[in-house]
Amino acid sequence: MSSKVISQPGVYRRNPVARWLAADTMAGIKRQRMLLGYLFIAPTIIGLLVFVIGPMLGSFGLSFYKWNIFRPPEFIGLDNFERLAGDTRVFVSFRNTFILVVMTVVMLESLALALALAVYRMANKAFATFLRTAYFLPVLLSGASVAVTLGYLFNKDFGVINYYLGFLGIDNIPWLTSSDVVLFTIALTTVWRNLGFTFIIYLGGLSSMPGEVLEAAEVDGATGWRKFYRVILPLLSPTILFAVVTDVIKMLQFFDEPFIMTRGGPGDSSRTVVMMMYESGFGNLDFGYGSAIALLLFAVIMIVTGIQFYLSRRWVFYG
């Protein structure tokens, strides 16, 4: 279809670009709609460019340099990556992070799903609303304040938790000062703060399940565990995938709790990858090396997420 200019105000006639955009033809209208669409998403695109893609590219470039803020960056090729390959502390931090991810995600998903099911089935709607609010409240707290407060509670000698465990005849547990339990303590703290978010996601998933399918299942005799396993779980699987993927990505970036509660200690037993990255950059003033760690973490997150999506083909039901 050829474009045909029907009418144009004089001012546009003199500017060919404006004339092209404002052409009162089918093609012109399409262009205008398209432009409007792009204008709407422009803030997001610009935000992504400035705050995500730009820093990512900057970090990628920085990983080939030695830079301590004070002196000009010095190009060192792949030295940072060679150092990374031989840095056992970085691998310890990855191991710690993976352990934390497994512990927190398993606890989060199972507890959140159980709570969501309980609240979903609750007959007393007012109490259900109260519980929804109560479980979500910790999400509104800052990670730092939660870590500080729970740090006091978990204190080995003066903490409230050991005080009450003492009534059960349990000796003081070095929650934050023993490498045997410190990751578990941090996982517990994180689960307490994040449970509400995952819980709300599951509750949303349960509420949007088609009622007729559940009723049909009941008519067919599916009750209890069988109904949950054969009907609810498959229907909820896209929600579970979303919750697991977002929680895993979030937990791979563990920082607040271990940084405030233990500073990564004892030794490196609770040091996470993001802590290593932060300390390399802002503690040791080795921004190139910190960037190399960041890139490695980025790659790991991509791979883990990719694996999750690949495996999801086998168990996620989109019907």
């Binding site: 070095p174 000062t177 990564g264 200690g265 030794g267 490196d268 300390e279």
Partner: peptide, 19 residues
């Protein structure tokens, strides 16, 4: 700063009985 990190890290290993 980096020296302090090393200092506190190994100190914590001793005080916690890990080393």
């Amino acid at each position: 700063i980096e020296m302090t990190n090393i200092y506190t890290r190994f100190t914590s290993l001793a005080t916690s009985g890990e080393l």
